[in-house]
Design a protein around this nucleic acid. Structure first.
Lengths: 243, 243
DNA sequence: CCAAAAGTGTTGAGGTTACACCCATGT
DNA sequence: ACATGGGTGTAACCTCAACACTTTTGG
């Protein structure tokens, strides 16, 4: 039997299969805090609870494509930094049936974040309150715009906690911070992003030099406008040619 | 309609679903090199090719449980450090049908590695040759015991590359190195593990002090026996009480 | 001229590397 | 006694954080 014949006779329905979904942590920085976009579940189970936007993975759709589709459909967004986080596969994580969820982290600029909010009014921007701001990962509290504490549906709180952890861990050796900033930004804005993610204040001159020494920043010569005081220079993210 | 009624009427078979599998990177250190255990595929597709041991996820089995089961069934091992790596979900990664694979990294001591080899003779210990030893991740070459270069089945080479990257990345801020060593070990053995994973030589006194300063090592007072020269002290991995 | 934030120079502390040396053991 | 690897002390070096200072703008 050759490979082609084998494939013809193979029965893909021999075993019961779990469903596979993707869930997206849509994260941006608002008012100095990491903030995520949540949707209110209209249907059972967990009707009325807030949840991460998600959707099932189509049979002819890669995981990355499914994540991009959910980003498009549920947040009206064409592009965003999107990376796979972790796969959650506890048997009872969804009471309907067995659903394995591949969680993705999507990083949004403030503009993209606000655009999604006005395009799709059902989205709720929820601030993430990290208990021990400087330290390692534990449970995260999620606050609605009027400071109510929210209980998320399913295991989405655990997904969120992992997203925060990942974002922190990658902050200074990768380019994730720039995915949260517009094309042109000042060093102060970059520092604000770092401080929001870390939940801690940073030393200005040290931060500045460390960032410039990495060689990832290209000075544009242009300066911000409309500042009440001395306008800061605008930089652009650009990997050094040495890479 | 309340939640119970809703669940009764829910049809879990409304959509076609992909299959979900786990694949294990069983890694240990042999002869100063990271080495993985491979199985020869008996059946199509990719019959005759070497592959990572894996299996389908049961409908009532969590992902972690499935990984543990494969570890038991395919490597005859009760326990090992096991951590989820990444989920591979390209549409065409398996020609039979849509299979999403959750990859796990399993870390084996040299004893466990050898035990698996003698318990299950079908396993092949394949050394991993990392092209640019000190640097970041790219493709990895896999060598059979007689130094033949192997072509792995499916996308398993990519899984392996990611496993090496993860192991390197976690080497000095986590306890993964100790999962590759027996209960009691010398500082030289610990350094050998680090050097094998990093593919680079390390400075002895610096390494020694860094490890001791972490507070993860407990001196036992016992010394290794059978050494041709001065016997080294044996240490045990033990997180500091301050954690 | 003042307030406020941008941007720079200098210093000092801490940690890490590199090298040299001493120690313990089997032959 | 000696070869060999285990284990330790010291000094040079590098990195980075803290502070003070200058610069630039709007009012």
């Amino acid at each position: 039997m050759n490979e082609t014949d084998f494939l013809k006779e193979y029965d893909p329905d021999a075993f019961r299969r779990p469903s596979v979904a993707v869930d997206l942590v849509l994260m941006g920085i608002r008012e100095g805090r990491p903030t995520v976009l949540l949707v209110k579940r209209a249907q059972l189970p967990h009707a009325g609870r807030w949840a991460l936007p998600g959707g099932f993975v189509g049979i002819d759709e890669s995981l990355d494509a499914a994540a991009a589709r959910v980003l498009r459909e549920k947040a009206g967004m064409a592009h965003a930094h999107l990376e796979q986080l972790y796969t959650f596969g506890a048997v009872d994580r969804d009471p309907r049936m067995r659903i394995i969820s591949v969680a993705y982290l999507a990083l949004l600029t403030e503009q993209a974040f606000d655009a999604a909010l006005s395009a799709i009014p059902a989205l709720l921007p929820a601030a993430i309150q990290v208990p021990w701001a400087g330290e390692a990962g534990g449970p995260v509290d999620v606050l609605s715009p009027d400071k109510e504490e929210l209980t998320l549906a399913f295991d989405h709180a655990a997904i969120l906690a992992m997203a925060m952890l990942r974002l922190r861990g990658k902050l200074d050796y990768s380019d994730v911070a720039f995915a949260l900033l517009p094309e042109l930004f000042t060093l102060r804005q970059l520092q604000d992003v770092h401080e929001a993610v870390l939940g801690a204040a940073l030393n200005k001159p040290a931060f500045r030099r460390r960032q410039l020494d990495k060689g990832w920043l290209a000075a544009t010569g242009a300066h911000e406008s409309g500042a009440a005081f001395r306008p800061a220079e605008l930089y652009r993210f650009q990997r050094s040619t040495a890479d």
